[in-house]
Amino acid sequence: MVSELSASSRFFVLQKGSLWSRFDVDAGKVEPVNREEGADCPKCGEPIGMMRWLPPYRVELVLHGEESGDYLETSGDDLLVSERFAKAFREDALMGLEGFHPVEVVRVRRKRRGPKPTDIPRYLAVSACFGRAAVDVTRSRIRYNKPPTCDECRSEGVDSIHGFTLEPGSWQGEDIFRPRGLFGDVVVSERFARFVERHGFTNMRLTPTEEFVWDPLARGPPDPKPTSA
């Protein structure tokens, strides 16, 4: 079923929790790491996804904080979620995650002094789907090194992001997805945000898309600022 997209719909960028938080954990893939080619744009043929992770799914956890949370990021487009998160995601009938492959935690190392962790969650490897929702190029504050030329993927080099919005009518109801135009970012619905709060899931940071900033080279926002619709 396609969800309605109204002027009041809100979306958030999903990232792992803050550095040095209680749940600050790095997840690294353990050899052998098998991969296959990622997705390409069906229209222009340019790559839109990182290489896909294939079995065996094995990781090492490095704890900078005190314990391991419900959401971890690893290399590529691959994400790890706890078993309790996966169970609630299915029971609440949310949409947008793919995979749910059991992961073997080969070892756990603590980066700082402290007791050895004893309660490590079981994790599953998932990926966020490539959604139909598209970044509204004219209403977003994104600095490109060249303008997007493909109407489908809108995937050109991005120098900085100082807030973005989705094109009205493009969202198809997914609760977690990678939007056309910013495939490197994971975006979630307002329903997902309420789901996280209700269940108290840890190590998740949700930033409204219009407030999201990514500017690694300090290029600043585009000029002039787009006028609001």
Rank of each mutant, 00 (worst) to 15 (best):
T207Y: 03
S170E: 03
R109Q: 10
W20V: 05
E98V: 12
H199A: 06
K225L: 13
E31G: 04
P208N: 06
H101V: 12
F201P: 05
H101C: 10
D92P: 00
A134F: 02
E37C: 09
E31Q: 09
L124P: 08
V2Q: 04
K43C: 14
D223N: 13
G173Q: 05
K111I: 00
R58I: 12
G181M: 06
P117S: 07
E210P: 00
G169Y: 03
R107M: 08
W171S: 04
E210H: 11
K87F: 13
T202H: 12
L14E: 06
G69K: 06
R22Q: 09
S189G: 07
G49L: 12
D92E: 15
W214Y: 11
Y123G: 07
P168D: 05
P179H: 02
L54H: 08
D77M: 04
V13D: 02
A88G: 08
S140C: 13
G96A: 08
G184S: 12
A7R: 12
D175V: 04
V105F: 01
F23I: 00
T74G: 06
Y144I: 06
G99E: 06
D24W: 06
E190N: 11
E174P: 00
D78P: 00
D77Q: 12
S127I: 13
V13L: 03
S228E: 15
P55M: 08
P102F: 02
R132N: 15
L166H: 01
W214L: 10
P148V: 11
P179A: 05
F195W: 12
D223S: 15
A125G: 14
N34I: 07
S9N: 08
T165R: 12
D26C: 00
S3P: 00
A128D: 09
R194E: 15
G99L: 05
S160E: 02
V158L: 06
R122K: 15
P222L: 09
M50E: 15
L5P: 00
L61P: 10
F177N: 01
E152Q: 13
T165N: 00
T118S: 14
E152P: 03
G96D: 08
I161H: 01
R198G: 08
R139F: 13
P147N: 11
V62H: 11
S170M: 01
P222I: 05
V186K: 14
T227P: 02
R141V: 10
S68P: 10
T202D: 10
R180T: 07
R22H: 11
R194W: 10
P55C: 09
E36P: 00
D70A: 10
V196P: 08
V187H: 07
G76Y: 11
G49H: 09
V33Q: 04
